[in-house]
């Protein structure tokens, strides 16, 4: 990658070379090795491994729970971002700071505390059990964990958009006689939508690959509450490399698709910002 223009600042060759080598060795090469290794499999074998019933069940759970969690976050995360950006109330600063907590907290700790909270005798599990709802060790538990880890992505994507939102636009709509709900629907919502979608996609991408926070609460019953990343670990522990790689390639492909989607969404979303 040659510099396209004279630049008096030195060190481009050195830093660029180092960057390329580092990213190449640490990131690209290992991922490429995985893909190349998968090519050893015949397409039929790959297909069989990637779509065996247990794998299919794990995809269903992973994507189903991830979509649901991202959906919950898109709704409540947007609400939380809105409230944090627009209202002043006691404890606001604390809640604002805590929004990042799920990101900063190691996933194993998140899994542990969520499993404990929602267990039959936990703070929240007790009440839910009385209502006949079991969260821990069910797909619902998976969704709860994925909602937790995805929360910061939606809130932090939306918050600056809502804050940067041109109040004059809203005021203009109000002076034109638009009611508050009408103003929200026709002026605010269209501007927010790209950011909500971006936050949704970011939360989804994180959820699909998530492992640590889920395995504590999920119970990990095959065909019921076993997520795809966990199945990879199980295949590895059975020394079934091929099975693990087939699953990993499927997950990787989906991650890339999401990555591209997110980049496109960000580009779309940034058009609405000044």
């Amino acid at each position: 990658m040659p510099a396209t223009r004279f630049n008096p600042l030195p060190g481009f060759g050195l830093t660029m070379g180092y960057t390329l080598v580092y990213v190449g060795v640490i990131v690209v090469l290992p991922l490429a090795a995985l893909l190349v290794r998968t090519l050893d499999l015949t397409p039929a074998d790959f297909w069989r491994l990637a779509t065996d019933p247990r794998a299919m069940a794990s995809y269903r759970l992973t994507f189903g729970a991830s979509l649901a969690a991202a959906g919950v976050n898109a709704l409540f995360g947007t609400l939380l971002a809105w409230v944090l950006a627009r209202y002043r109330f006691p404890g606001r600063g604390l809640v604002d700071a805590l929004v990042d907590f799920p990101f900063a907290l190691p996933t194993a700790v998140a899994g542990l505390t969520l499993a404990d909270l929602f267990a039959a005798e936990g703070w929240l599990g007790r009440g839910l059990a009385m209502a006949g709802i079991q969260v821990a060790f069910t797909p619902l538990g998976v969704m709860v964990a994925l909602t937790f880890v995805g929360l910061p992505f939606v809130v932090r994507t939306l918050q600056p958009v809502i804050e940067g939102f041109d109040r004059e636009l809203e005021e203009a709509a109000a002076t034109l006689g638009a009611g508050r709900w009408r103003t929200f629907r026709s002026v605010v919502a269209p501007t927010l939508l790209p950011a909500v979608l971006t936050g949704f996609a970011l939360a989804l991408a994180r959820a699909i690959g998530e492992y640590g926070s889920v395995i504590f609460i999920a119970g990990n019953k095959p065909f019921v509450s076993e997520i795809a990343p966990l199945l990879i670990v199980i295949r590895l522990e059975e020394y079934d490399y091929a099975g693990a790689m087939a699953l990993a390639v499927v997950l990787l492909a989906i991650s890339f698709l999401l990555l591209i989607t997110i980049n496109l969404l960000e580009r779309w979303s940034s058009r609405f910002r000044r």
Partner: peptide, 12 residues
């Protein structure tokens, strides 16, 4: 964007 599990797997 890569699942941490996949990151571990590539090293294996």
């Amino acid at each position: 964007s890569v699942s941490p599990v996949v990151a571990g797997l590539v090293l294996v």
